Simulated assay, not measured.
Amino acid sequence: MREPNEERAIADVVARLTIRYPSLDPAQIAAAVGHVHAHFESCTVRDYVPLLVERHVHRDLESLRAIPV
Rank of each mutant, 00 (worst) to 15 (best):
R65N: 05
V13Q: 03
C43T: 13
C43K: 15
P68I: 03
I19W: 01
R2W: 12
L64R: 13
P22A: 07
R46K: 15
L17I: 06
H35F: 05
P68M: 02
E54I: 02
I19D: 11
R20P: 01
Y48C: 07
R8C: 02
V57S: 00
H37I: 03
R20K: 14
S63K: 14
Q28W: 08
H39K: 15
R20T: 10
R16H: 09
V33L: 02
V49R: 02
A15L: 14
V53C: 04
A31W: 01
V13N: 03
C43L: 15
H56R: 15
H37V: 05
V33R: 01
R59Q: 13
I19M: 09
L24F: 09
I10Y: 01
R59L: 10
V14H: 04
R2T: 09
P22D: 07
C43D: 15
H39W: 10
V33I: 01
A11S: 12
A38W: 06
S42T: 15
I67E: 12
H35Q: 12
V53P: 02
V69W: 01
P4K: 06
C43N: 15
H37S: 14
V36D: 00
V49S: 05
V33M: 01
H35D: 09
Y48T: 11
I29A: 09
V53R: 00
Q28F: 10
A30T: 04
E7T: 14
L24G: 01
P50S: 08
V36L: 03
P50H: 06
E3S: 13
R8A: 12
E41N: 10
E3M: 11
A9L: 06
D60I: 00
G34Y: 06
R65Y: 07
A31T: 10
R8W: 00
P22W: 04
A27C: 06
G34C: 07
M1V: 09
E62W: 00
Q28S: 14
V13L: 05
G34T: 08
R16W: 05
V13E: 04
R46V: 03
Y21P: 01
V57Q: 01
G34R: 09
D12S: 13
T44M: 12
S63L: 13
H58N: 09
L51D: 03
V33Y: 04
I67D: 11
G34H: 05
V53W: 01
P4W: 04
P22S: 06
A32T: 00
